[in-house]
């Protein structure tokens, strides 16, 4: 029996085969899924902000791209997975509201996605699927059996990556 484990906002979880991970209603946040194909250990983080460095109140490591990815890798490795085998699939980073005169604060989704890509690159984790941007919400499900990522949207159907 496999269980679907929920990851909340500013939260991260690691799962073993045959369990799956999900996070519901991603908007400007980014869902980061990591997978080790050999051990089938999976990890998912739902980050809200690009970096913990600019913010003093940063105890919640799952809230920031930099600290969340590091924590996810370390938790997965403690379950016997190896970073050198990891690949990533990412989704979210939408811009839910748009104005003609854009300021930086409004592009937080884009900045989140960019930070995630950069950190994964620094850590040598390849990105196998990148479903970020747009102006709509996404629910994601990540399966430990084969690293399949399912993306559901309101009114735009289901996509498999």
């Amino acid at each position: 029996m496999s269980t679907m484990i929920k990851v909340g906002m500013a939260d991260l979880k690691v799962a073993d085969f045959p369990n799956a991970l999900t996070t519901l209603g991603l908007g400007s946040c980014v869902g980061i899924c990591l997978y080790d194909p050999l051990t089938k250990v999976t990890g998912m983080a739902h980050i809200m902000l690009p970096s913990s460095k600019a913010i003093r109140k940063n105890e919640n490591v799952a809230k920031f791209a930099d600290t969340a990815i590091a924590e996810l890798v370390s938790q997965m490795e403690s379950k016997g997975a190896k970073k050198s085998r990891f690949y990533a699939k990412i989704a979210g980073g939408a811009q839910m509201f748009s104005f003609s005169s854009q300021n930086d604060a409004m592009k937080i989704g884009e900045r989140n996605a960019e930070a995630v890509r950069m950190i994964l690159k620094e850590m040598g984790i390849p990105i196998k699927a990148d479903e970020t941007g747009g102006n709509f919400g996404r629910t994601i499900e990540f399966y430990s059996e084969d690293g399949k990522l399912l993306i559901k949207t309101a009114g735009k159907g289901i996509k498999e990556l």
Binding site: M9, G25, G27, S28, A94, F97
Partner: peptide, 17 residues
């Protein structure tokens, strides 16, 4: 600016702020 979408996605905007 108006959006009709999943509550989680809409509310991510104030939550991030």
């Amino acid at each position: 600016a108006l959006a009709i979408d999943m509550a989680g996605a809409i509310l991510s905007v104030p939550a991030i702020e």
